[in-house]
Design a binder for these strands. Structure first.
Lengths: 200, 200
DNA sequence: GTGCATGGATGACAATTGTCACCAGGGGGC
DNA sequence: GCCCCCTGGTGACAATTGTCATCCATGCAC
């Protein structure tokens, strides 16, 4: 019997996934978490064989949960289940010790199958996405990412400067650098491109 | 027996929801659609009692499917199941003849319950969201919305002008108007605010 | 027909944004 | 030690963006 912990912030989807897995006779859903903090706590308490987790969750992302469990060298194997086919996410997931990266776009039958493979010590990663993930590295520095993120929220250069205690000119330099690295037309375009790659 | 058609673009979620409903003895999932066009076609062919549909789907949105079915005065009742608590979406859903508006954030037990209520001729709408939907109307004109949408994609004013066959100054006027109507700081802020309300 | 709202356009102006060159300190890596 | 990269900063300049007043059709209401 493979013991599974599910983490997903949309309650409806969480319940539906649980019902999907409960059909499988060799799987047992031992816990459900609605955010990253709960997921980490329950993973420690329950030590499931496999944690199936979303990436984007309030409080703590699935990537952070995975990294935390890895740091504690927990035996729990991790399946990332996400909406986003973003190379940067996959890369960070693997760095954080995940064993599988599954898209919510893929057929529901694949979830149970992936859990079994992972529990048996294997890995499940989409080959095309993997190729993309290694071909192109995130070119942004931390500062550039921060500045870009704030500008995507609608802050002006002056606002960003104030928020990060930088000078206005420096913020414009970072933004300009990010725009040029990404081959974008302006800050909005740059933010969109970075988001699509999972770098933001 | 209530005959249900499910429409949802994320295959994993679609399968999971089907498994969730298959547990209920008084419900029968008669079809699954992966996009809006399929949903409309299957709704016509199968004439289910209830269509449960996502809003944001490729090709044709759930709102458009609902509107099309309403135009054909189909008896099928509609449950919108979406991630977004956006007043504008709820309003458009009701205008399009939907009987329920459910969030993916709400507990999974509520789905079957909502389907039963709707099949019996009732409505299921979150009261706080409903209040919000009627308190604040979409202030944007069609042109303003179009221009804002393109600017959110990273196009410059000149690009937008070319795309819509308008003059550069006119585009800036619309943008300025939208920014002021929304009380935003700039085009990025305006787009974010409009998106959050479901007006974009 | 007069009045008036709407869509589209100008021109002018200020503010913001994007680019570039260049400077300086601090950590690594080799 | 030297080189390179990251951070942070200036100053200057051009391009884009945002604001306003104003204008002209069109079409609709009365």
């Amino acid at each position: 019997m493979i013991r599974v912990l599910l983490a997903e912030d949309q309650a409806m989807v969480l319940g539906a996934l649980a019902s999907l897995l409960s059909i499988e006779s060799d799987l047992e859903v031992v816990g459900r978490a609605g955010d990253g903090v709960d997921a980490l706590r329950m993973a420690r308490d329950l030590t499931p064989d496999v944690l199936v987790t979303d990436i984007e969750m309030p409080g703590m992302s699935g990537l952070e949960v995975a990294a935390a469990l890895k740091a504690e060298s927990q035996a729990t194997r991790i399946v990332m289940l996400t909406t986003f086919a973003r190379p940067g996410y996959l890369r960070r997931a693997l760095d954080a010790g995940a064993s599988a990266y599954l898209l919510k776009d893929s057929p529901s039958e694949q979830l149970a199958e992936a859990i079994r493979r992972v529990a048996a010590g294997g890995r499940v990663i989409d080959p095309t996405l993997a190729a993309e993930a290694w071909s192109e590295a995130d070119p942004l520095t931390d500062r550039e990412r921060q500045v870009l993120r704030l500008s995507a929220e609608g802050l002006s250069s002056a606002d960003i400067a104030a928020a990060l205690s930088l000078s206005d000119g420096t913020v414009r330099n970072y933004l300009s650098e990010a725009i040029s690295k990404l081959g974008a037309k302006n800050r909005v375009d740059a933010a969109n491109l970075a988001r699509a790659k999972g770098w933001l």
